[in-house]
């Protein structure tokens, strides 16, 4: 039992990473019907921006110019990096995808992959091939709950992720911007007839997705402080699978599927040798998709009609 609970905690942590990234995939797909295949690399860029911000803030603190406790620095790092990374997303939309709005979907997919490579190699060119290590902002404390060991970092990661997801849910269901996003997911063509600027909503969606990916990147850096330019590739693909599994365009689906992915991976590794982990885990998911090709919450919206 304790063994099971121990793994549950790990699964929640990995699920948080996947879910936060999957949300960006799913939201963009929901409103623009395109998969942003550069999204995994935006996660990587977010982690690096977080590294830069955290390093800068700790340096200022060390010089005595910023008298702040470390946890405040961490919160600031998350917020500032989310803000900065959202502009990366806006840029990707503006330069990469907007000109292709009416082009065949394959063009957008290829463009996304290219943008990903540009971000990876751009990072390589900028910072060199060495890995960087994320500043350790909080000291690890381990709590023992009846034999289940939980670190303060894990609690923080899961809590911050859940808070962000709840905030996103509120935003999408309560604000007029969120309402416009939902409308756009249903029928993108008529949205301008409501006086709603399509491009602004598209940019906003990219911004939010990228900000969430940045948060995931920093939380990842807190748990596993070694960053490299290719860290986004595997994460990106796995989160993409989660978005599909959740149901394209579904926020609830992406969240649940992200966590489910974490669980499947961790529990497969509990039983089988770790070299077989992904093979078995993703075979299970493939099997689920055979029976639910639209994923958990996938609504097969009618194909969009021209006006």
């Amino acid at each position: 039992m304790t063994f099971f609970l121990q793994n549950l905690v790990n699964a929640l942590q990995w699920g948080s990473f996947y879910a936060l990234i999957a949300l960006g995939y799913s939201m963009v797909y929901g409103i623009l019907m395109l998969f942003n295949f550069a999204h995994g690399d935006i996660f990587m860029v977010g982690a690096y921006i977080g590294f830069g911000v955290a390093t800068g803030l700790t340096a200022l603190a060390a010089m005595g110019m910023l008298a702040l406790p470390n946890w405040v620095i961490l919160v600031l790092t998350i917020l500032i990096s989310m803000f900065l990374t959202s502009f990366v997303g806006i840029l990707v939309e503006r330069l990469g995808y907007r000109p292709l709005r009416d082009a065949p979907r394959a063009s957008a997919a290829i463009t996304g992959l290219m943008i990903g490579i540009i971000l990876e190699t751009g990072n390589l060119a900028l910072l060199g091939a060495r890995r960087v290590s994320f500043p350790s902002l909080i000291d690890s404390v381990t709590y023992n709950f009846g034999g289940v060991y939980v670190t303060n970092k894990k609690i923080m990661i899961v809590a911050v992720s859940l808070a962000l997801m709840a905030a996103l849910h509120q935003f999408v269901s309560r604000t007029k911007w969120g309402m416009a996003m939902r409308a756009m997911a249903f029928d993108y063509v008529v949205v301008p007839l409501m006086g709603v600027p399509l491009n602004t909503i598209a940019a906003l969606t990219f911004a939010i997705g990228s900000a969430l990916a940045a948060a995931a990147g920093i939380l990842f850096g807190v748990a596993y402080p070694v960053l490299d330019p290719y860290m986004g590739i595997v994460f990106g693909w796995k989160a993409f699978v989660a978005a599909i599994l959740g149901g394209r365009g579904s926020i609830m689906g992406a969240t649940l599927a992200g966590f489910l992915l974490g669980f499947i991976e961790i529990f497969v590794a509990m039983i089988f040798p770790s070299t077989l982990r992904d093979l078995i885990a993703y075979s299970i998911i493939l099997l689920i998709l055979v029976f639910r090709p639209h994923g958990f919450f996938g609504e097969a919206y009618s194909a969009r009609l021209r006006l």
Partner: peptide
């Protein structure tokens, strides 16, 4: 200047009130 398109094209996933409120997006 507003255009009610052929076939209505409501946002079926939004409520009646939300459809009306969305139309005031810029107001």
């Amino acid at each position: 200047l507003t255009h009610v398109p052929e076939g209505r094209r409501l946002f079926g996933n939004l409520t009646v009130l939300e459809n009306l409120k969305l139309a005031c997006f810029a107001r």
